[in-house]
Design a protein around this nucleic acid. Structure first.
Length: 469
RNA sequence: GACCCCUUCGUCUAGAGGUUAGGACACCACUCUUUCAAGGUGGAGACACGGGUUCAAUUCCCGUAGGGGUCGCCA
């Protein structure tokens, strides 16, 4: 059997990390078995669906590099077929008209709640004579669900889950305006798209029982279900706006790499022994539903960021530079030129281990792009004293005579300079760093000077040394 | 409230009857060192509780407690 999975978000909000993980798991499962990964936009609630949200879903999946097979399916496009099936069920006696108004239903629920009874539809129109229908109300079509026995879902993550059929109510298939509900549409679409495995959040677990009954009523085979636990906020509560940035795009903007995001999401609820850093290829090879945990996981920003740092360190220079360019252009308010980019490329190995996200990295690299003379920040300005100016002036003279502008050349010279003045390296390196970067923190000062190049380095140093009072 | 699911360090997790209960993040020390990181070494830190089953339970079963989810003409 060919494995066909699908990601079926509703475009009523942005793609959040829970949805992203669901997409990732479906994608990995399909890839692992050489199957297909389909995308279906569940827009049957046309009032709440927006094209911005649809775009956000596409963008999010794009960023995570979770491409789908074939064209994305818009659920609303199948409305006619969905409605036809509802009428077919009606004709077969497996569904019925219900003339309850929304007001009547909420009254019913209120009363049930007050009396401590289950808040389900009481099936009042199931066996009632349609002749009694009120003339002013357009009816809905409800599913005539079995009232006894039980429905068992052989869930690939949760194991067998048994639900007594009396717990399930007669769900609405077709609204009073004739449009199909989600419950009907998923069943029809999963069947039509030949979905073999439905991997989704476990908030759908009870829906799986309802949907299974619908599949049976239609004489169809339900897909295999795998309900994965939800992701919670750091406080253990359901993930919500309170927890801050939730759309995957927000993480991208924070300078998180897509690979880090995927790796983090993968490890949230899934594991492969003690492995932590897992490449896309390994993930495809190792992924299986059996190793998904059954308990909900909390979102931990620290771990995401730590993972991000590790992916930044591993990242290829070229890719990093192209990700950094727009950020730098933003900070500089103009695009960096070739020569400046050259400096960035040279310093990249020194920059990588010092940044946890791309934004931080761009900020750390910013000094490379600044025009002389540099404005020193508060801390580094304090390092420039009358004494250190004199020292920098002397050092400048020695550096000007240096022929070997390399790490060893520079280090030998500066160390020798410090020794001959009976100074610790730090005493010399810090003012030097301030002169080169305008900051007290940077990659190795020698790497910085190499990246800046001889001319710029000497220029920056003379800017400081020349100010001797 | 009813039904369903869950419970190993603070967090993510390994474990699938007998382990000094392992790893990662965070934390603390030390180390490296021109700053800051990164790296290296070490440390502290967990089987929710109560009953069973068993020679032996973190592991199997049943309760309790706690957490989560679902009960829409939303998806």
């Amino acid at each position: 059997m060919t494995v066909i999975t699908r990601f079926a978000p509703s475009p009523t909000g942005f793609l959040h990390i829970g949805g992203a993980r669901t997409a990732l798991f479906n994608w990995l499962y399909a890839r692992h078995y050489g199957g297909k990964f389909l995308l279906r936009i569940e827009d049957t609630d046309r009032a709440r669906s927006t094209s911005e949200a649809v775009q956000a879903i596409f963008d999010g999946l794009d960023w995570l590099e979770l491409g789908h097979d074939g064209e994305a399916v818009f659920q609303s496009a199948g409305a006619e077929r969905h409605a036809a099936l509802a009428h077919q069920l009606l004709a077969a006696g497996k569904a019925y008209h219900c003339w309850c108004s929304p007001e009547e239903l909420s009254e019913m629920r209120e009363k049930a709640r007050a009396e401590g009874r289950p808040m389900r539809y009481d099936r009042r129109w199931r066996d009632r004579d349609p002749a009694e229908a009120p003339p002013d109300i357009a009816p809905v079509i409800r599913f005539k669900a079995p009232t006894d026995g039980e429905t068992v879902i052989e869930d690939l993550v949760q194991g067998p889950v048994r639900v007594a059929n009396e717990q399930l109510d007669d769900m609405i298939l077709l609204r009073s305006d004739g449009t199909p509900t989600y419950m009907l549409s998923v069943v029809v679409d999963d069947h039509d798209m030949q979905v073999s495995h439905a991997i989704r959040g476990d908030d759908h677990l009870t829906n799986a029982a309802r949907q299974t009954q619908l599949f049976l009523a239609l004489d169809w085979q339900p897909p295999q279900y795998a309900h994965i636990p939800l992701i919670h906020g750091s406080d253990g509560a359901k993930l919500s706006k309170r927890h801050g940035a939730l759309a995957v795009g927000a993480y991208a903007q924070m300078g998180v790499l897509a690979q880090a995001m995927c790796n983090y999401l993968l490890r949230l609820g899934w594991s492969h022994g003690d492995d932590e850093i897992i490449s896309r290829e390994q993930a495809i090879e190792w992924f299986e539903l059996a190793s998904i945990g059954r308990s909900p996981a909390r979102f931990d920003m620290d771990k995401l960021i730590s993972l991000n740092g590790s992916y930044i360190r591993q990242a290829e220079d070229g890719g990093l530079i192209s990700l950094l360019q727009p950020l730098l252009a933003d900070l500089l308010e103009k695009a960096p030129d070739e020569a400046q980019l050259q400096r960035l490329e040279i310093l990249l190995p020194g920059l990588k281990p010092r940044a946890k996200n791309l934004l931080e990295m761009a900020e750390n690299a910013l000094f490379l792009f600044l025009q002389r003379p540099l404005t020193l920040d508060e801390k580094s300005a304090k390092l420039i004293t009358p004494e250190s100016r004199v020292m920098m002036a002397e050092l400048l003279t020695e550096l000007e005579a240096l022929e070997d502008w390399s790490e060893t050349g520079l280090e030998t010279l500066v160390r020798g300079f410090a020794d001959s003045h009976s100074l610790k390296m730090g005493k010399v390196a810090q003012p030097l760093r301030a002169s080169m970067t305008g900051k007290t923190i940077s990659p190795s000062i020698f790497d910085v000077m190499i990246s800046l190049g001889r001319e710029e380095s000497l220029g920056r140093l003379s800017d400081i040394a020349a100010q001797t009072p």
